[in-house]
């Protein structure tokens, strides 16, 4: 049997999500952003929330998410996405409001907004992409950069006595009473992608149920910023990032 006999509409088991539009993504080859965008599109489509979803994308590579996922988006000032999301969700609680932030955004300039939105138990979902680097601006050190990791501003590696310790901000958020679901996932293997999809689905349904703030951290790669091929970057992430940022649910107070 030839592939042409198998490629028929009735045999289709994996289709490109309809909410992803035809624009080519500007992300570098192998960027984790593309996978997470795809998962968001799939989950919104499956939950029937496409018309109700409002995404807030602040500064970072994913600021252009509005070009790719066909839902309503608001672009926020750097780090201020949870504050904007608070306003949107309070004005119209029937909407599914989520933020899409990187580590330079959520863990650095936006720490205050993120922590306080979570502490107020705002019914929003926070998707947090952690690649340990400022990817958009040229690979500078972020608060989440690992100890000894080389970046363009720490060319000899991050030194704790000079730059402090890597910040595991999702672990901080588990301490807040306002968060109902805090998890850390990755998208480097098919199994990890499926788990991340389930986590995003739960975060979105928590937001609609009014259970509190959900945080989904996705430990990601930045192949260009790390100066590796995408495959090497995934391997490096498994060996180094997961030691500091182990995967799994950190907190879940919602009854399944």
């Amino acid at each position: 049997m030839t592939p042409q006999d198998i490629i028929r509409p009735e045999n289709k088991v994996y289709a490109r999500p309809a909410l992803l539009n035809e624009n080519n993504m500007h992300y570098c080859p192998g960027c984790s952003h593309g996978v997470v965008h795809k998962l968001i599109a799939e989950v919104l489509e499956e939950m029937g929330l496409a018309d109700k979803a409002i995404g807030i994308a602040p500064v970072g590579c994913a600021v252009f998410a509005y070009n790719y996922v066909d839902i309503d988006w608001i672009e926020a000032a750097h780090g201020r996405a949870p504050a904007v999301a608070t306003a949107v969700k309070r004005l119209d609680p029937t909407r599914m409001v989520f933020t899409y932030q990187g580590d330079g955004d959520l863990a650095a300039i936006g720490t205050c907004e993120a922590i306080h939105a979570a502490n107020r138990a705002e019914n929003i979902a926070i998707i947090f992409i952690n690649n340990g680097i400022y990817g958009m601006t040229g690979g500078q050190m972020a608060p989440t950069t690992l100890e000894g990791m080389k970046t363009s501003t720490t060319p000899y590696g991050r030194r704790v006595e000079l730059n402090g310790y890597p910040l595991a901000i999702t672990n901080l958020m588990t301490q807040l009473d306002g968060t109902c679901y805090v998890t850390r996932q990755a998208v480097h293997t098919p199994a990890a992608v499926r788990k991340t999809k389930a986590a995003i689905r739960q975060a979105f349904s928590n937001s609609m149920d009014g259970s509190g703030t959900s945080v989904v951290e996705v430990v990601s790669t930045c192949a260009s910023g790390w100066k590796m091929t995408p495959v090497q970057a995934n391997k490096w992430m498994e060996e180094n990032m997961f030691a500091k940022y182990p995967l799994g649910d950190l907190k879940n107070t919602v009854q399944q």
Binding site: N11, Y14, G34, H188, R194
Partner: peptide, 23 residues
């Protein structure tokens, strides 16, 4: 190919579609 869709799951640009049939 066994149509497991692993390739499609990890594809960042969503350029793979997968078909499967049981004979």
């Amino acid at each position: 190919c066994i149509g497991c869709a692993s390739c499609a799951a990890v594809c960042p640009d969503a350029c793979i579609e997968v078909y499967r049939m049981v004979v």
